[in-house]
Amino acid sequence: MSAPVFDAVVHAPGRLQICALLSAAEAEFATVRDAIGVSDSVLSKHVKILEEAGYVAVRKAPFGGRQRTWLSLTAAGRKAFGAHVAELNRLAALTL
């Protein structure tokens, strides 16, 4: 269990769900977009911020003559997300 640490990069709107999704599996860009209900450009901005923080890795893979983008959580991203969820659980317990 990670020590509780609030992470503003993870907590921001949309990015929390992106990290939640990627903590369970690698996912294709369109799948993440549909799951969190944002446009391509909004998701791209979130991914760029997470990538710059070292939390998300981006992989391009050819499929049917075009490139598909796959997103995954890095070890640092997994650790930060775990710590952030621990903090959310701690705060939730305090506010019950």
Binding site: L16, Q17, A20, L88, N89, L91, A92, T95
Partner: peptide, 8 residues
Amino acid sequence: PQEALEAI
């Protein structure tokens, strides 16, 4: 926090 955990 509860809403965030529910979103997760």
